[in-house]
Simulated scan of single mutants.
Amino acid sequence: MSVVAWTAAGSLAAWLWLLLCQGFFWRTDVRLPPAREPDSWPSVCVVVPARDEAGVLPASLPTLLAQDYPGRAEVFLVDDGSTDGTGALARELARGRGGLPLTVDAPGEPPAGWTGKLWAVRHGIALARARDPEYLLLTDADIAHAPDSLRRLVAAASAGGFDVVSQMARLRVESRWERLVVPAFVYFFSQLYPFRRIASPGGRTAAAAGGCVLLRAGAAARARIPDAIRHAVIDDVALARAVKNTGGRVWLGLADRVDSVRPYPALGDLWRMVSRSAYAQLRHSPLLLGGTVAGLVLVYLVPPLAVAAGAAAGDGPAVALGAAAWLVMVGTYLPMLRYYRQPWWLAPLLPFTASLYLLMTVDSAVQHRRGRGAAWKGRTYARPDAVAEEG
């Protein structure tokens, strides 16, 4: 066989391994299980870090305040240095509405070694601890919850004995670029962190989705959350690892009734969302970056390139092997497209989307090598090796 055919065979082998041996990552049936409601509902404090969120808060905060929760619950919105009136808007949205009580506070600028979000989370947890809650719900300011969201999260955690119950919020898919990029984002995430392995008590895989994390307060104290992860850009994965490393149990699945209302209408918006943390995901390692680029090329780009090159050269084995690998790729992506209610014909375009993610990852590494770190909402965080160790 030709070199192209052998390369396509390698891609097909990789896809068969992913299909059968990577925790069935491609299935989308890991959802919050129905659970028997507890006899006594534990108290919950909801912590919402928010920075310049006036544009999305009217669609998200009222859904938290309207939670149908039988136990004691209240919401703490922590204004992380907003310049658009986020805090004042939150108070206005709660005024005269009823529902869960709301406290709005601001911790000031984060000290060195802290990301802004985790500094806000720390402040919110400190306020919550005065109420001695059994659970903390950490949720982003762009997340809208169905009225029974908190109730179902607590019931699942209580019945399953989980210290973390997290749901991957359904992201917005309205613009052309959102339809092309967003389902793939969740697909790639589940490929890296298969949901079934996360729930396995003896497994090492740990991850959470930062938009919706129900965390047992005792587990947070044991894992020193958020102090132990204060510089983490990918804070949700770091949180899950810290909890699991201290003996906690973690569950993560796709959401049916928890949605992100944040728009990413243009490619540039999605590019910034991915590139701000892509190199951090690779632990800022050039070696891991090189391996990731090579892996993305072999797994996602080789199949269509082998089909095209094989067809041009009359290389039947290259065409057949490349098409087989491409077909497996498409088949594993279809369940995610169905979950996002998107047309099937987007599945064959996954190699193009993967090439965008490859470029976003390389761009993330370039920005870090230039000393810019991860930039988000007007803040730029230094590389971890540039942050002085504390205490």
Rank of each mutant, 00 (worst) to 15 (best):
A35G: 04
R27I: 12
G108E: 02
A13M: 08
V75F: 07
R31V: 01
F25S: 08
D79S: 07
P107V: 13
T83R: 14
S82M: 00
W17I: 13
L19C: 03
V104H: 01
A54Q: 04
L18A: 10
C45R: 14
R97N: 05
P58S: 06
C21K: 06
A112S: 15
P42F: 12
T115G: 10
L89T: 04
G98Q: 02
P70R: 03
L64Q: 08
A13C: 09
P111G: 03
A90C: 07
F25D: 01
V30P: 00
G98V: 02
P111N: 04
L61Y: 07
A112V: 14
Q22D: 11
T86I: 04
G71L: 12
R51C: 13
W114T: 02
D39V: 05
G98N: 07
R91T: 10
L12M: 12
P101I: 13
V47Y: 07
T86V: 02
D105G: 12
V48Y: 05
W26E: 06
R72I: 04
L32R: 09
L102C: 05
G55T: 11
V47Q: 05
P58K: 15
R97L: 07
L100K: 07
D52N: 15
R72V: 15
R36Y: 13
A90N: 11
P107I: 06
W114D: 01
G23E: 05
V30I: 15
L65D: 10
P62Q: 09
L20W: 11
G96V: 04
G113E: 02
D68P: 00
A50Y: 00
G96K: 02
F25Y: 15
E53S: 14
E109W: 01
Q67R: 10
F24W: 08
A50R: 00
P38L: 03
L19N: 04
L61C: 09
A73P: 10
C21T: 02
P33Q: 08
R51Y: 13
L77T: 12
D39N: 11
A54P: 03
P107W: 05
A50M: 04
L20K: 08
G99T: 00
R97K: 13
R72D: 13
P33N: 10
L100R: 08
G85F: 09
G116A: 06
